Amino acid sequence: MSPFKGIALKLCAVVLFVVMSSLIKAASDTVPPGQAVFFRSLFAIPVILGWLALRGDLATGLRVTSPMGHFWRGFVGTAAMGLMFAGLGLLPLPEVTALGYTAPLLTVVFAAMFLDERVGLFRIAAVALGLVGVLIVLAPRLSTLTGETVQTTQAVGAVMVLLGATCAALAQIYIRKLVATEQTSAIVFYFSATSTLLSLLTVPFGWVIPDGPETVYLILAGLLGGLAQIFLTSAYRFADASVVAPFDYASMLFALMIGYFIFDEVPTGAMLLGAVLVIAAGIIIILRERHLGIKRGKARALRTPQG
């Protein structure tokens, strides 16, 4: 184990995921979310295959024992990605990032519901704290959910991101089941393959021919997303999940910086307060799981902000 190496890899993954989201946001004015999912997924595949080839796992790393498990993980993960990308086009980047932190909180709830995992009062209280933070972030948006205004559009975006986080949490439940029988490389690859194919179902809803810069943004988003997934997966090989998982929340710092300097987005006090509560709740849950000895490293290694 090499904790510092694991942390460094995790931070690299976090930065790349935020940059990837920024590229998707930059193209979102004209490129629909389904088309963005296609580019994000398709151009991640050669990166993942190259990684497998370098590891010598290309011949054996793609074998599966649960094809339908991979499909359902891909289905809910694709829904999460599409909803998150839709939200990026409607909301400031830091706000999407903050609302995305709902996913690990909901994973605790879904684990109790679908995996019969025992959840004590300590983690229930942490989830409740996090959901209070989410409500603080959402409140200014949901109060304007009527009429045809910019605020209404942003309210719809907030709801989409929250639904995306819900789908991402469900994807984590499928991953938790898959890691018991499937190789990490197979889970990573077949998610990208499934989301590429499923995104094609959105073609009738208005795909466009992107211009030069937008095409570059979308291709880069796919390449960086694939590279970030490799860094993320590798981070958990060098350090325990409880060590590297809290660094997920460094994404808020990078999202604030990119949002401010690139997109001229100034965060509100409510957004920052809500984000602090959600981050605190997430870290409390991670520390509690470490204390209880819950092994979730493999599942976290396969998580992406989009599911």
Rank of each mutant, 00 (worst) to 15 (best):
L218Q: 05
P46D: 13
R288G: 15
M84P: 01
R300H: 09
A235G: 00
A235C: 00
T149P: 09
K10D: 00
P104F: 01
G212A: 10
R303M: 11
S234A: 00
A44M: 05
L224H: 02
P140L: 08
L16M: 06
V266D: 13
G133R: 01
S242W: 15
D57I: 00
I209L: 13
G274F: 04
A239E: 10
F75C: 15
L220D: 01
L145P: 13
G89V: 01
L91F: 07
L115Y: 10
A112Y: 12
G282T: 08
E265S: 15
P104I: 01
L178W: 05
I283G: 09
V276F: 02
A169V: 03
V127R: 04
R141Y: 15
F122N: 08
T153W: 11
A299R: 13
I24P: 06
L197W: 10
S21T: 11
V14L: 00
V19K: 02
P33Q: 08
A171I: 07
V161Y: 08
S22C: 06
T78P: 07
L292I: 13
L105F: 01
V150H: 03
I285K: 08
A250V: 04
A36R: 07
Y174F: 15
A281D: 07
T78R: 12
G89M: 04
T149R: 10
G269Y: 03
A168L: 01
Q35H: 00
F17C: 02
P33Y: 11
L83H: 03
I7F: 01
L115G: 06
V15A: 02
P3M: 12
I24Y: 07
F247N: 01
T166I: 07
V31S: 02
Q306W: 10
A186W: 08
G225R: 06
K5L: 14
S28Q: 02
V119N: 14
V156H: 15
V108H: 09
E265F: 14
L224F: 04
